[in-house]
């Protein structure tokens, strides 16, 4: 199979993620869209790695996964505390630094 198709898939996934970030209000959904964008990037990196015949891209993909895991931990904690204080998971409600 032509590896370029993976790149198309990655672009599609990234676009879906980006649109979700821009359109949706729910913090959890937003969060998942961010993950989707990250994974689209991973896919692209791996595809490039395959196309160019070196392993750099695959190694970077591992780093991305580790960073994404750490991000999930911090991000979810923020979302939980946001929900506790404002009783809502909408990002538009949290437009001020104060309550």
């Amino acid at each position: 199979m032509n590896p370029v198709n993976y790149l198309y898939l990655a672009a599609l996934l990234f676009t879906i993620g980006a649109s979700g970030v821009l359109i949706r209000r729910n913090a959890i959904v937003l969060f998942m869209c961010v993950e989707l964008m990250l994974n689209a990037c991973n896919l692209a990196l791996v595809a490039f790695s395959r196309m160019h015949g070196n392993l750099d891209g695959q190694i970077i993909a591992f780093f991305t996964m580790v960073v994404a895991a750490a991000e999930v931990v911090v991000g979810l904690a923020i979302i939980v505390s946001l929900f506790r204080t404002r009783h809502s998971a909408s990002v538009d409600d949290a437009s001020l630094m104060k309550l």
């Binding site: 821009l22 990002v91 538009d92 949290a94 437009s95």
Partner: peptide, 8 residues
């Protein structure tokens, strides 16, 4: 304006 999505 404080809206995260507009920054995005």
């Amino acid at each position: 304006n404080g809206y995260a999505r507009s920054y995005a």
